[in-house]
């Protein structure tokens, strides 16, 4: 019996990195959206930077999701 410790370590490192990355980027998007919404309801103004940040972050997350679907569906390979 031989255990492939390298592959195991790879799974651990990649999984942790991707998870933390996606969740942090998504959280930054959430933060941007929240800023935008607060500016609109409280001040009646707008927070363009917040909206842009949200859009950018959510697009990045959508790209990761698309890559995930690509990995799941064998017909795409």
């Amino acid at each position: 019996m031989q255990l492939d410790w390298t592959a195991l370590g790879e799974v651990a490192a990649v999984s942790t990195g991707v998870t933390v990355g996606v969740v942090v980027v998504f959280a930054l998007g959430v933060l941007g959206l929240a800023r935008f919404e607060e500016a609109r309801t409280d001040v009646g103004g707008t927070h363009a930077l917040g909206l842009a940040q949200a859009a950018l972050c959510f697009v990045a997350c959508a790209a990761v999701v698309a890559y995930g679907i690509y990995l799941i569906v064998p017909q795409f390979h």
Binding site: T19, V20, V22, V23, V24, F26, A27, L28, V30, L31, A34, R35, E38
Partner: peptide
Amino acid sequence: ATYLAYKVTARA
């Protein structure tokens, strides 16, 4: 990820 998600959005 959870820890960071709460940290990032703490003030929102």
